[in-house]
């Protein structure tokens, strides 16, 4: 019984330690970015970063735009980040989903998009399918970011 109490105390301490570490790192980034909403309708949302030091995510920019009533979006948190399921009232279905595209390629050895999964054109710019969700894409000056209503390939 004594050893079980020791085990329990050790496990509880480990849970608290892990929780504290995760909580400390889960807060939103405090960086800055200046983003412009270029298009927002039922099939696409296009954002361009006019300034950005890479510490703020596309998610936080979209959230700020939602607060200003420029667009609406919804989704769910997962281990891999925020997953968008609805934009401007248009919900993902069995046939269509909201794909994330960006012109941001490789930065500091990390690839943020892959054209193998598809590309999307916007005013002469080719955006590739993003390797991360909206919460994993950093806002970098001059880059385009898009949410596109996309058919699921059979």
């Amino acid at each position: 019984m004594k050893h079980f109490r020791t085990l329990f105390a050790a496990a509880a301490a480990a849970v608290l330690l892990c929780g504290a570490l995760f909580a400390g790192c889960a807060g939103g980034a405090a960086g800055t970015s200046d983003a412009e909403l270029l298009v927002s309708d039922g099939t696409r949302v296009v954002v361009r970063a006019n300034a950005g030091d890479g510490t703020q995510s596309l998610y936080s920019v979209l959230e700020a735009m939602q607060k200003e009533n420029k667009l609406t979006f919804a989704g769910s948190e997962s281990e891999y980040g925020y997953y968008i399921t609805s934009v401007n009232g248009v919900e993902a279905t069995d046939d269509h989903y909201w794909a994330v595209y960006t012109t941001l390629g490789t930065l500091d050895g990390t690839s943020y998009s892959d054209a193998q999964w598809g590309t999307w054109e916007y005013e002469g710019n080719t955006l590739a399918s993003a390797s991360y969700g909206v919460s994993g894409l950093p806002m970098i000056e001059g880059e385009y970011y898009a949410l596109v209503w996309t058919a699921i390939a059979a």
Binding site: L17, C18, F22, G24, C25, T110, S135, G136, P138
Partner: peptide, 24 residues
Amino acid sequence: IPVSVLYRARLSAMLWALFGVLAG
């Protein structure tokens, strides 16, 4: 680990947390 710059701190914390649990 070369993940998104936005995730690096969280991943590093996770790795240290697992290290702490295993060492404990």
